[in-house]
Design a protein around this nucleic acid. Structure first.
Lengths: 226, 226
DNA sequence: TGCAAATGTTAGTTGTATCTAACTTTATTT
DNA sequence: AAATAAAGTTAGATACAACTAACATTTGCA
């Protein structure tokens, strides 16, 4: 019996588990409302889950979890909770967004990754003082610390004699090909060797070669100082 | 012009950006290899991106990013990097898994969530001592701290006179309905008031009512001490 | 230069998950 | 008890993103 579930069927099973914990019975309509889909879509999914023997569903009747279904549904629900807690408690994401994000990503994360998150949550809750110092600092940092969206520095603004690493190149293909043949590639380290009076052209050194560039082209090369 | 991209087309655009930074030209074959799909699938996606004017592609020719395409592609790539760094540097996930997980979840996270992650990374890199104390502790915790997968405690093992919160219920529907009508629902607080000699039956109090339960049924009710 | 290999295109198929619309069964109301 | 409303089912349509297979073009080598 193949118990593999698609993201969509996982959603249905998780929802069945949740409703079964809140209401006396689970109906197609409840699922349609909860998942914001039409009843016919639910009917389809329910058939699949029944084929996998995770639920039992009789015509025009209620939906019930089998033992296996209960177990799987519960673990799906718990995985969701872990992600939700992580997003809200650690990353300080708003509940509404956290809930949506948890829903979308829960299907895709490896078991190992979720394990790490569980451990991080554990680590924080078992810290000597309930909220660890760093988290308090992080919260403050969130309020004040503008995550500097620094200007991307471009090659034309590099100073003569200094080195930098290439971060990205945005040039018309003929020029780009020529440069790439000389070794001007993402990650490569280059040195600005000379600048003409008005900064045009400039001369750079890469892999021992020296080559000359127009300022307008140099402007299209993003760098990162080293 | 609708610039909305599906997860799949986002992948293609990101890959085009990446290849354009590594190779002199971008071809259908390169994309097929990188994304592990057939060339015909790439052809399809390329047509869509061209329709949105994010790339230019001439018959049997190379693929080139437009200005807009470069910008979007680059930001997709950077988002991926942020997630990858987060997974490896903070959660200590293995590179291989981190890379796959980043690929899968990057399409689904809200801008705000990614922003938080950027800030957390920033916060850590700007900490006075390069690796903050708590991260060192967390790494140790990962090695030793067994994230106790404690036995789920069930109602039958609660002590007389103590209270607990209901965490989950797994019972045949007729009994479950009866209990739920009395207020035995997930999240509700209950008190164990009496236990017969061999622990069967037990009596609990919920919302003022007292009710009696078989041990075998109580065993199916998971609780959480309060 | 010419032919084979590599690369690219197109048309049509499959699988998944949604939908609409018509219909059936069950529940509720008068 | 009949009429109406609510819930559930089924068949067929649509959209997406992959696929296969047959065909077209370009490249590279003998």
């Amino acid at each position: 019996m193949d118990l593999t579930l698609t993201p969509s069927t996982e959603d249905y099973l998780k929802a069945i588990y949740e409703i079964s914990q809140e209401k006396r019975v689970v109906r197609i309509k409840d699922l349609a409302d909860k998942l914001k889909v039409k009843m016919s879509s639910v009917a389809n999914a329910v058939k699949q889950l029944a084929n996998k023997e995770l639920i039992v569903h009789e015509h025009y009747g209620y939906i019930e979890l089998t033992d296996k279904g209960f177990e799987v549904g519960k673990s799906l629900y718990e995985r969701h909770l872990v992600l939700y807690k992580f997003l809200t408690q650690i990353l300080q994401v708003e509940p509404g967004i956290a809930s949506k994000d948890a829903c979308s990503i829960e299907h895709y994360l490896h078991k190992e990754t979720v394990e790490r998150i569980v451990k991080l949550l554990d680590f924080i809750s078992t810290a000597p003082n309930s909220t660890p110092q760093w988290m308090i600092k992080f919260k403050k940092f969130l309020e004040t610390g503008v995550s500097e969206c620094r200007y991307a520095k471009t090659l034309d603004r590099l100073e003569v004699g200094t080195k930098a690493k290439i971060k990205s190149i945005r040039l018309e293909s003929t020029i780009k090909k020529r440069l790439m043949d000389m070794g001007v590639i993402k990650g490569e380290t280059i040195k600005l060797t000379k600048k003409a009076p008005l900064g045009d052209p400039i001369e750079i050194e890469v892999k021992g070669y020296k080559l000359s560039l127009r300022k307008k082209d140099a402007k299209q090369i993003e760098i990162e100082e080293v």
